[in-house]
């Protein structure tokens, strides 16, 4: 326990303290001019102390101070009903549901493609360049077109956003699973050959279990970019609901604190999702009898 404290918690806390200190310094530097100009318009002259207070408490600062963001998050989560249109919990849930749907679809699609690539020579020769090409297109460019096209054929709401998550998250799963399904050593494949095992048996008894560590590495990347995909998918919908909508409306009205609060919530959600995938990974590893210190 004390070991965990020393090796895991302290280093993280130390970095956090440095970041917060740097943040306050940057907020002061960036907001100072704004504060001084505002005071000059009102014909006031600010003392140094008053200038500091002002820089850290503006309504629309260039860079909000950390405590302003925390206060905004607190006000828009704990102090209001989660069904309120101004609640960040409500918006986070909208984005999260698209993220999870897209991630699920992306994982299934990724695994299916990898299985095809490993088992079918034609797919092996033809698919990979297209899979890679799909990721070279900027998601910001393709997202609005996808949303518009899907809207035109009557698909709107959750699914278009989820499909953008799918578009991003299938990629690490394909790459990881192709490598994972091909990871068994020759000696293990020879062994199955001597048993005259069928392709199905070879897959379920050797290839798939051997690919599990690769799958989880991919899922951790996939779940985080699924969230990004869902947020990007919300931007062109005209800012109705979701964390992306909060970012968009924040930038329309220069509400920097609102933007930062939404950004913080999205990174907290992403962190939680990766943490949950990591927890499932540890659980699966334990069920598969991994050596305790070999766990990721």
């Amino acid at each position: 326990m004390t070991n965990t404290l020393r090796t895991k918690i302290w280093p993280v806390l130390a970095v956090l303290v440095v970041i917060i200190a740097a943040w306050y310094a940057a907020a002061l530097l960036m907001n100072r001019t704004l504060a001084v100009e505002e005071a000059a318009r009102k014909g006031e002259v600010l003392t140094t102390g008053a200038m500091w207070l002002k820089a850290y408490s503006m309504d629309k600062p260039l860079l909000p101070a950390p405590h302003q963001i925390v206060t905004e998050i607190w006000n828009s989560t704990a102090t209001m009903s989660i069904t309120s249109k101004r609640s960040l919990v409500y918006h986070a849930w909208i984005t999260l549901s698209a993220t999870l749907l897209g991630f699920g679809l992306g994982t299934v699609l990724g695994i299916a493609l990898a299985v095809g690539i490993v088992h079918n020579l034609a797919m092996d020769k033809s698919m990979m360049p297209w899979v890679i090409a799909s990721q070279t297109i900027p998601i910001m460019a393709i997202a609005p077109m996808l949303i518009v096209v899907l809207n035109a054929i009557g698909i709107s709401g959750l699914l278009p956003k989820a499909l953008i998550s799918t578009y991003l998250s299938f990629f690490p799963v394909v790459v990881g699973m192709v490598k994972g399904l091909r990871s068994p050593e020759i000696i293990q494949l020879d062994l199955m050959h001597t048993y005259y095992a069928s392709r199905t048996q070879l897959f379920w008894k050797l290839r798939f279990p051997a690919a599990i560590p690769f799958l989880f590495a991919s899922l951790k990347v996939g779940i985080a970019i699924s969230l990004i995909g869902a947020i990007v998918g919300e931007l062109p919908t005209g800012a109705v609901a979701g964390l992306g909508a909060r970012l968009l409306s924040g930038s329309y009205y220069g509400q920097t604190i609102q933007i930062w609060a939404a950004l913080f919530v999205s990174s907290i959600v992403a962190g939680l999702l990766v943490f949950i995938v990591g927890g499932i990974e540890r659980l699966v590893y334990r069920m598969m009898g991994a050596r305790p210190e070999a766990q990721a």
Binding site: T194, K205, I212, G289
Partner: peptide, 30 residues
């Protein structure tokens, strides 16, 4: 195809995710 021989390789090639008895069960399951 008649499964008329058992092969022992240079390395044990046990599946790390299976217990010893599950490893022995592998050819029997197949």
């Amino acid at each position: 195809k008649n499964r008329s021989y058992g092969y022992v390789f240079q390395a044990a090639a046990l599946y790390p995710w299976r217990t010893i008895e599950k490893n022995i069960a592998l050819p029997l399951e197949i």
